[in-house]
Simulated assay, not measured.
Amino acid sequence: MKVGLIRCMQTEDMCPGTTCLKVMKEKKLAFEGIEEEIEVIGVNTCGGCPGKKAVTRAAEMVKRGADTIVLASCIKKGTPIGFACPHAEKMEEAIKKRVGNDIKIIDYTH
């Protein structure tokens, strides 16, 4: 699995992404049951509200080899601040439309 991780720009000052990377490495939570090696192709932010840049950033990571786009828990669950992105659903829909059905989307990490 080759992963492109997209995280919330609003939380990057308080979260270095270590938990997202750790659960990938240990194949826990959203990555439980994945047999193959997980390679991180890239890590980027959504670009700030309303997350429009996430679409082109996801497409670029797919161009560079990602077969899976992961929206970090800060987007869908609001971790660590307890406030999920109000644009998360629309962002995910736009990413799916842009990258196509062959690319897997995982909508949280931990």
Rank of each mutant, 00 (worst) to 15 (best):
E12K: 14
K97G: 00
D13P: 03
R57V: 04
E12A: 08
R98G: 03
I81W: 03
M9Q: 14
K2T: 10
K22H: 06
A54G: 15
D67L: 12
E92I: 15
H110N: 12
G82A: 10
I6V: 14
I41M: 01
H87W: 14
K77E: 15
V23K: 00
V40D: 02
V70C: 05
I38T: 03
V23N: 02
V43H: 04
M9E: 14
M1C: 04
G51E: 12
I6Q: 04
A66D: 08
R64G: 07
A84G: 01
V40L: 09
D67H: 09
K90P: 01
I103T: 03
H110W: 08
K27F: 05
V40H: 01
E92S: 07
D13F: 13
F31P: 00
T68V: 15
A88R: 10
V99C: 03
T56N: 14
K97H: 08
E39G: 03
G4D: 01
E93M: 12
I38K: 04
D13G: 10
K76Y: 12
I75L: 15
Q10P: 00
E35C: 04
I69Y: 06
K27N: 01
G82Y: 12
L71S: 02
I106R: 01
L21M: 14
P86C: 07
I38Y: 01
T79H: 12
D13K: 14
K97P: 02
L71E: 04
G47R: 11
M91C: 03
P50N: 13
A66V: 11
T79R: 06
E26F: 07
E32G: 03
S73I: 10
G42Y: 02
E12I: 15
A88H: 05
M9V: 06
G4R: 10
K25E: 08
V62F: 07
I69R: 13
D107M: 05
I75K: 15
V40A: 03
L71Q: 07
A84T: 07
A58F: 09
C15V: 04
L21H: 09
I81N: 09
T109S: 07
K52Y: 12
E39P: 02
K90R: 09
C74K: 10
H110L: 07
M14F: 10
S73K: 09
H87I: 03
A66L: 13
E12Q: 14
V43G: 01
K53C: 03
H87G: 01
R64Y: 08
N44G: 00
R7C: 06
V23H: 02
L5N: 04
T45L: 12
Q10Y: 09
P16A: 11
P16Y: 10
K53Y: 13
N101S: 15
R7P: 01
G47D: 07
A58V: 08
K27Y: 02
S73C: 14
R98F: 02
T68Y: 09
E60P: 01
L71D: 07
C15Q: 05
I75Y: 11
H87D: 13
T79D: 10
I41V: 15
G100A: 08
